[in-house]
Design a protein around this nucleic acid. Structure first.
Lengths: 151, 151
DNA sequence: TCTTAAAGGAGAATGGTTCTCTATAAAGAA
DNA sequence: TTCTTTATAGAGAACCATTCTCCTTTAAGA
């Protein structure tokens, strides 16, 4: 099953577990807990947020452990990292491939918009610059519906 | 003159100076030096790189001063900041408004590609998400022509 | 030249992330 | 099941780009 065709969080969990196993990485309780959280989360959690959730079940877990698990999943291309220089990085475990994001600068919510015809843009760039494009990052910053109302 | 229609670095220097003056900010030797560097630089320098250049003329300049000047110009919308969580931020003083960048992951070169039809993408996003889009960030990562040859 | 508030300089503080080192435990073997 | 090995977890120090603090200097109008 391709990564962009997971319909349930169970699919994603199974897929991430399979990737870990196929690379001979051990399935530890901490790793399983993080995978479950990532596979289920509708938002784009930070390491700190994952940490808080894991600690509900495993109170002795170290923050460093979460960082290590996140780094591992990123390395295995099972997790997309959205790095921000001025605040915590955020993670997308459901769609671990580059795709556009819409970010509310007020409540920090991050959403995945549907978007057509981005590939042609990418090809135009490659043709005009001579670059071999490996990946990309497209973020739109603004105010979500709710935060527009409050103002 | 609109910011996206400066043809020479002199134009940009004059424009940035005018903005500082119109907001009653003092023109200090350090600020002038930074403005000149930003208006002239073809690349996208980091604070450290600006610092090194300023120190040629003013060896006692503090790194904190460069940070302060950069923050001020950013606040005045005369400088575009490209933040990177894992390395130094980079700055674009020639085109201080959001535009796509192409970034070589090997030599760290940053270029401005010409790009048509990005606005419709932005409108599609706003329509589909209900966000009021304020600004955006579009980065393509890959290998530039030179780094493709070396491998 | 004088005055004064803004700006600069130096170094400490910050904070998300990474590193180091030791203790623990997952998973295959016997 | 128990044993063995080695990856992984835990705890806290270290890192480093950036920001902050506090004091000194200076730009610019009077």
């Amino acid at each position: 099953m391709p990564k962009d065709d997971c319909n349930t969080s169970g699919d994603r969990l199974y897929q991430m577990l399979a990737t870990l196993k196929s690379h001979d990485f051990r399935i530890t309780p901490q790793r399983l807990a993080v995978l479950k959280i990532l596979a289920a989360s509708e938002d784009h959690p930070s390491v700190e947020q994952i940490y808080e959730k894991v600690r509900v079940e495993f109170p002795t877990t170290s923050l460093a452990t979460i960082y290590k698990i996140v780094a591992l999943l990123k390395e295995l291309n099972e997790l997309l990292e959205l790095g921000f220089p001025d605040e915590s990085n955020r993670y997308d475990g459901k769609k671990p491939f580059p795709h556009p994001h819409v970010i509310c600068t007020k409540c920090k919510k991050i959403m995945d918009p549907e978007l057509t015809s981005f590939d042609e843009l990418k090809e135009e760039i490659a043709r005009k610059t001579g670059f071999r494009i490996i990946h990309h990052r497209l973020d739109f910053f603004g105010l979500c519906r709710e935060c527009q109302k409050v103002e």
